[in-house]
């Protein structure tokens, strides 16, 4: 009950401080690994943004934008992990990365990989310089088997 009140209260008494300060911004990066001891990690950005989005696509996204909204949710999870590491946030990010892996949507397609790991890279501006800090490494997760189409 207390948890429910804690979750409901920010909606009933909102703070409305949108974009008051522009804090560190997370990027989720993943690495595909052959084994648990594989140290040859190469990190790839998860769901890198498009080069260009046309006005037509923007209009469509007014009513249908599930992947972007999921990415925004993952950004929230990354920010929550930075504040306080919880299994829920880590699990949500990993769940989405594995879903994309199964759907062959990851930009890296290392076929002999058996494990996956993600990390959180935060970008922030300090005066006129940009700082990149890795603040979190996930547990390794065994990759599920994928189905390959004949084509």
């Amino acid at each position: 009950m207390l948890k429910t009140i804690k979750l409901l209260l920010p909606a009933l008494l909102p703070s409305w401080r949108f974009f008051d300060t522009i804090g560190p911004s997370p990027r989720i990066q993943y690495a595909l690994l052959r084994s648990e001891n594989d140290s040859s990690q190469q990190w790839y950005e998860f769901r890198p943004r498009s080069k260009h989005v046309s006005f037509g696509q923007m209009l469509t996204r007014m009513v249908w934008n599930p992947n972007w909204n999921e990415s925004l949710f993952l950004t929230s999870c990354a920010e929550r992990l930075r504040e306080n590491a919880t299994f829920h946030s880590e699990n949500e990010i990993m769940r989405c990365i594995i879903a994309d892996f199964k759907a062959h949507l990851l930009s890296s397609n290392q076929e002999d990989a058996n494990f996956i790991q993600f990390r959180l890279l935060f970008i922030e501006r300090q005066k006129n310089k940009f700082e990149h800090n890795v603040t979190f490494y996930s547990q390794l997760k065994e990759l599920p088997k994928r189905e390959f189409s004949d084509s």
């Binding site: 974009f19 080069k51 950004t75 501006r125």
Partner: peptide, 14 residues
């Protein structure tokens, strides 16, 4: 900052 490095802009061109 929002345009330069935040997670929000939908494309690199933006």
């Amino acid at each position: 900052d929002v345009f330069q490095f935040s997670a929000y802009p939908v494309s690199e061109s933006i």
